[in-house]
Write a protein that binds this DNA or RNA. Structure first.
Lengths: 123, 123
DNA sequence: GCATGAATGATAGTATATTCTCATTATCAT
DNA sequence: ATGATAATGAGAATATACTATCATTCATGC
């Protein structure tokens, strides 16, 4: 036997599909427990690592805290970090000439843009 | 008596003035020990916190590791992170329309742009 | 429905980063 | 130069994040 489709695993997957934004491990635990109240930290850690290994989730590192996770299949996008509720959101528009901004002699192969402010709910 | 101008403190200040780029605590310790070999971690931690409190240094958080510190008086700029040597560099050019990219209802009051790639020395 | 063993969850254990302690050193006002 | 004491540095102590353990639960194939 290999991988089982447990209630906990389904709950964690559901949490990401519903959220549509990057989540901290704490948020995954909190929202997951709304579906499966007994959900424990170890299970969250285990499954986030498994899902990252499978390529279903990817890590996002934003200022002000630990790693967040998001669905890996999303097209190129950036993030908005709310200073009030500390939630991260996707920003789908992207300034395209950014990679020409580096000093001479620097080879750019990627970029990350983070906007800060107040989200729609906190305004 | 208040604040003393110690050899260690001068060394740490010198390190930042010479570097001209954001430094991790580890880098501060390493470069500081080239000036004052006996420099210890506790002193680095203490003085980084003091200098941040004085507003002389500010924190920068880039992906892939801990907090870095840089001189606080620098004008608006962004950062380049070398994937090879993991050093951070300043990028002084900035795409100016970025803050208009947020979704409707989101109030943007700041932004951070990080470029990834290989620095001039690692190319 | 039942047996198998993958997965869970409570908690112990581990790793690592940061701070604290305190004897010693060195700055600075005099 | 000297004394008062701020600052240092080695290592202990602490905090925190993450992983390992293991008895129990439950998803799956038959």
């Amino acid at each position: 036997m290999t991988k089982r489709d447990t209630r906990q695993r389904r709950a964690i997957r559901r949490v990401f599909l519903n959220a549509g934004r990057p989540l901290t491990r704490e948020e995954v635990l909190e929202y997951g427990q709304e579906i499966v109240p007994s959900l424990g930290v170890a299970t969250v850690y285990r499954n986030l690592n498994i899902m990252k290994g499978e390529g279903w989730l990817s890590e996002v590192e934003l200022p002000g805290g630990g790693i967040r996770y998001e669905l890996a299949d999303r097209p190129h996008h950036h993030h908005f970090l709310c200073r009030s509720c500390d939630q991260a959101f996707d920003v789908h528009r992207c300034p395209d000439e950014v990679e020409t901004l580096a000093p001479d002699g620097f080879e750019v192969d990627g970029h990350e843009l983070i906007l800060f402010g107040r989200c729609a709910a906190c305004t």
